[in-house]
Design a protein around this nucleic acid. Structure first.
Ligand code: MN
Ligand code: MN
Ligand code: ZN
Ligand code: ZN
Lengths: 149, 149
DNA sequence: ATGCTGTTGAAAGTCTATTGCAATAAAGAG
DNA sequence: CTCTTTATTGCAATAGACTTTCAACAGCAT
């Protein structure tokens, strides 16, 4: 697993220990197709026979988020449910993180959109109100390629 | 109150009754400087001596949201807390609702940004992935005018 | 191998939001 | 204006997501 090595290196740098539960969560996120909630992570791990407590999942999520290895997005629907997703750097100028999620209203699938232009456009728009932009979170609703057909 | 008249008219159109609790919530939102959470609404109303149950607040929020009179945004911080805000139409082409919130990381104040260009830009960006955009939610973090000085 | 200290798991506790149901009151009819 | 219908409210109980506390455990540096 290339991602696991990468993640472990960054965790070490940040002073975190490499533990079995952390490795399990990391592996799970690396294999996952889309964002996963804390409880989904626990259930999927337990289904594999890898015991983990929900509390630990939350703490590990926090640690991975601190380290910049994952970030959270809001899941489908208006319900306030937190999901997680493996992070791949976006290459924007300064905003520390960029979160561009396309959420299909039919199939519920979530895909990340790569769109560097938006960062600077938003920064300019915010600047006209005297607001110094540092981060942005963007969630788009609509129909995905498959469901639109 | 101009806003109350407007709100009552739209509620009637939608087949809702005009009740005392609804009037109270509407007035509160009209006077509020920024977004307010359900519990904040209840507490502020009770502080005025206007008794209301938290369940009713939630239901009224839902009804106002249906009618298009208010919309919800994610409050300060990563904590999943739901706040509400009076809605002013954004004039974008099609996306049913546009939510552009600037959240100051220091003072916590939230202001809405009016930025029609972003709607079409996002629609084009999403289209390159075959995604048909219908709605967007945008939350910007940084420093507001006063805190940046 | 040993010890220090970060980390885990289990239980209990918060906080937000929802559901069921009886009592209440808004709106239309007469 | 009074009656009748039915949406709406309030209360209590419940659900769901996440946190706190603390004892037991396990990395990892020496
Ligand atoms: Mn990202
Ligand atoms: Mn809006
Ligand atoms: Zn789809
Ligand atoms: Zn500020």
């Amino acid at each position: 697993m290339a991602y696991r090595a990468h993640a472990e290196a960054r965790l070490k740098e940040a002073g975190f220990r490499i533990t079995t539960p952390r490795r399990r969560v990391i592996d799970l996120l690396a294999e996952a197709v889309g964002p996963v909630s804390a409880y989904e992570m626990r259930d999927q791990l337990e289904a594999r026979g890898e015991r983990i407590d929900i509390v630990s999942v939350y703490r590990i999520i926090g640690c991975l988020e601190q380290t910049g290895l994952v970030h959270r997005i809001l899941s489908t629907g208006k319900v306030h449910r937190c999901v997680i997703e493996a992070h791949e750097p976006c290459g924007l100028p300064q905003p520390d993180h960029c979160h561009h999620s396309l959420i299909c209203r039919t199939c519920g699938r979530i895909e990340e959109m790569h769109c560097p232009d938006i960062g600077s456009l938003l920064a300019r728009a915010a600047a006209t109100l005297g607001f110094a932009l540092e981060s942005h979170r963007l969630e788009l609703g609509g129909l995905c390629k498959r469901c639109a057909a």
